[in-house]
Design a protein around this nucleic acid. Structure first.
Lengths: 333, 333
DNA sequence: TTGAAAGCGCTAACAC
DNA sequence: GTGTTAGCGCTTTCAA
C-alpha cells in the first residue's frame, strides 16, 4: 500500500501541491472554499504528511534531543516524563540518549543527535568539567538548555532547582524542631548539585552554634555510600543526618536501623529530590522536593522563546519545597 | 557557518557527489585511492552527513520508536536503558513516547512516530485490549515488536518473560522452605502480566494441598494496593504472601510491619520483576528477576532479523531467575 | 489567492 | 569504478 502524498491530495482536490501544502501547514492565507476541499480530500485519502520530507525542506525536524547521564537514576524518569509531555504537546518529538554517565558516550550521542538535525537539545550533563566542550560545541549549533546540573559558567541556558535554598529549608526545619548536632553526608566531586548542597550545608550549619557544623562525609550519590557514611558518623551521635540526596538518605536510614538507632527519636534523617522511594522508606523520608513539572516547563520555555541574537545565557533557579515526613518528626522525642 | 554538504566534499576531493556518497555510505565498491582522498577531504572539512536528507532518499531514518505506558514505572528505566544502548550500538536512534497509561494517547503517539518515518516500533502496550487496534495498524506499516506485555494473540512479534515459570519458581522456593499456607496479591484486569502470574499462582498453589490455594486478592500493580490487600489477608494468618510484582510486595511488607508481623519469621513475602527498590526494602525482597538485558537484545534482534515475507508472528519467552533475599529466609523461623 | 518551478542534501539508477 | 541524472516529498520563492 503506497503512501498517500501531497501530490495525491492535490490531484484529488483539483489544485496544486503548493496550495495543499499551504492549507495543511497553515503557512499562508488560502481561500476558504479551497481550504475546505483540500482538507476534505486529505481526510478522505488518509493523508499523513511525511515529516522527513518536511524537515528536509523547511530545515526543522520538530524534534528535540534529550541527553541524560543515566535513565536509571530514579530522579530522572519523572523529569523525562514531564519533558516528553511538554514537548509532544507542542508537536515535537523526543530523541532520547542515555550516556551511561560517560562524557565520551555523551559527546558521541550529542553528535548523533545533531546529525539527525534535532531542532534543539535538552541536556543533563554527565560531568561538570568533561561535558563542557561537547556542550559548548553543540550549543553553537542548536538551542541548548542545561537541566538540573550545570556545566561551568556561561556555557548555555540552564534550569535547575535552587540547591542552596533547599538545603537551607532542611536546616531551618531541623533547627526549629530542636535538633542541635547535625552532620552531613554528601557527594565528592564537582557536580553542581554536589557542590551547591555541600556549600549550603556548611554555610547553614554555622547557625547551630560554633561547635555545630559537625562532621561532613563525602562520597557519591548512592545508597551504598549512605550506609558506609553512617558507620563513620554515628559514633559521634549526631541528632540529625542531612543527606545530599534521597539515595544517600535511604542508605543512611537502613544502616541506622541496623545499628539500633531510633529514627526520628534519636536522630533525624533528611534527603533531597523527593524521588518516589523517599515516601516508601521506613520511616518515610523528610526531603526537599524538586519542582519537576516546573523544571520541565521552564526548560521547554527557554528552548522555545529565545531572545533573537542575544548572546547572554539565561539561568533559571526554581525554588524547592520541603516535604516533612516521619524521618524528622519531633513528636516522638 | 554553513553546513558542509556532500557537494563540498566532492568539490574538495575532485570527484562526483555520487562517489563521495558511495565512499561514505559504503554501499558500493570504490577505488582505494579515491576512497582515501574522499575520506581525507571529508575529515578535513568536518563533514557530517545530513541524516534527514539521507532518510528521505533512502527511505530509512535509522530511527526506532519506543512507546511505553509510563516511564515512571520503576521496571521500565532499566529496560529503556538497555534498548537505547542496543539500538545506538547499531547506529539507530530512539524516539521516545510516554503514553501516560492511556491507549488514546498511545495511539496518537504511535501516529506521530509513524509520521516521522520510524523504521520500526518497540512497544509496551498500555492495555491488553484497547491498544490492539492501534498496534495492528502500526504493525502493518513497520516492523513492530511487543515488549513485556502482550496485546492479544497473533498481533505482532513479542518478547516477554515467562511469567508462569517465574511464579512457579517462587512457589517451589516457598514450598521447599517449609511454607504451607500461601496467599496471593495480584492485579485485576486483563494485562498479560497480571493474568499469567495470577493463573500460574492458582495452578501452582494447588500443590500446597487441597486447602492451600488460600486467598487471592486482586487490585492493581501498586504499593498502595499491597498495603490494602494485607489488611484483608492477614487475619487468616498466611505464612507466605506471593505478590504479582515488587511494588505490591513493598506495600505488603510495609503494612505487615505496621501490623507487627514478623517477616520472614512468621510470614514470607515475595515480589516479581526485581526492580531496584526490591533490594532496598527491609527486609530485602525475594523476587523474580526479569532478564532485562536479554529482553532488550531479543527485541532488537526480532526487529532486525525479520524473515522475509513471513506472516507468522514470533513469540519469545525468556526464563526468569529467582532472587532469594531476606523476606523469605527460613533460618529465622 | 494560486500555480509553476526550484530545490533541501542525499542515494539509486543508469550510463560509460 | 565513476559520473550524470533523476528524484525522495515537501516548502518556498517567484510570477501571474
Amino acid at each position: 500500500m503506497a503512501e498517500v502524498t501531497l501530490k495525491d491530495v492535490a490531484r484529488a482536490s483539483g489544485c496544486s501541491v503548493a496550495t495543499v501544502s499551504r492549507v495543511l501547514a497553515g503557512t499562508r492565507p488560502v481561500g476558504a472554499e479551497t481550504a475546505r476541499t483540500v482538507r476534505e480530500a486529505a481526510a478522505r485519502l488518509g493523508y499523513r504528511p511525511n515529516q522527513v520530507a518536511r524537515a528536509l525542506r523547511s530545515r526543522s525536524t520538530g524534534t528535540v534531543g534529550l541527553v541524560l547521564p543515566q535513565i536509571t537514576n530514579p530522579f530522572f524518569p519523572s523529569l523525562v516524563r514531564e519533558l516528553e509531555h511538554a514537548l509532544h504537546a507542542e508537536g515535537r518529538a523526543v530523541l532520547l540518549a542515555d550516556c551511561d554517565d560517560d562524557p565520551l558516550t555523551e559527546a558521541a550521542r550529542i553528535g548523533a543527535l545533531l546529525d539527525r538535525q534535532v531542532d534543539a537539545l535538552l541536556l543533563i550533563p554527565a560531568d561538570e568539567h568533561h561535558s563542557r566542550d561537547a556542550v559548548l560545541e553543540a550549543a553553537a549549533r542548536v538551542p541548548l538548555v542545561l537541566l538540573d546540573r550545570g556545566c561551568g559558567p556561561g556555557v548555555a541556558d540552564s534550569v535547575a532547582v535552587d540547591n542552596a535554598a533547599g538545603t537551607a529549608l532542611v536546616l531551618e526545619h531541623l533547627a526549629a524542631t530542636g535538633r542541635r548536632r547535625p552532620c552531613f553526608i554528601g557527594a565528592a566531586g564537582t557536580a553542581s548539585t554536589a557542590v551547591e548542597r555541600r556549600v549550603a550545608y556548611e554555610t547553614g550549619a554555622a547557625a547551630f552554634g560554633p561547635q555545630a557544623p559537625g562532621r561532613t562525609e563525602l562520597g557519591d550519590f548512592s545508597v551504598a555510600w549512605g550506609r558506609a557514611a553512617v558507620d563513620r558518623l554515628w559514633p559521634a551521635r549526631p541528632d540529625a543526618v542531612v543527606c545530599a540526596n534521597d539515595l544517600i538518605a535511604v542508605g543512611a536510614l537502613q544502616r541506622l536501623r541496623q545499628l539500633g538507632a531510633d529514627v526520628p527519636g534519636e536522630v533525624a534523617v533528611t534527603g533531597f529530590d523527593d524521588i518516589p522511594l523517599a515516601g516508601l522508606a521506613d520511616p518515610a523520608l523528610t526531603t526537599v522536593r524538586q519542582p519537576v513539572p516546573e523544571l520541565a516547563a521552564e526548560a521547554t520555555r527557554l528552548l522555545t522563546h529565545r531572545p533573537a541574537g542575544s548572546a547572554s545565557r539565561r539561568t533559571v533557579r526554581l525554588t524547592p519545597e520541603l516535604v516533612v515526613r516521619a524521618s524528622s518528626a519531633e513528636g516522638s522525642r
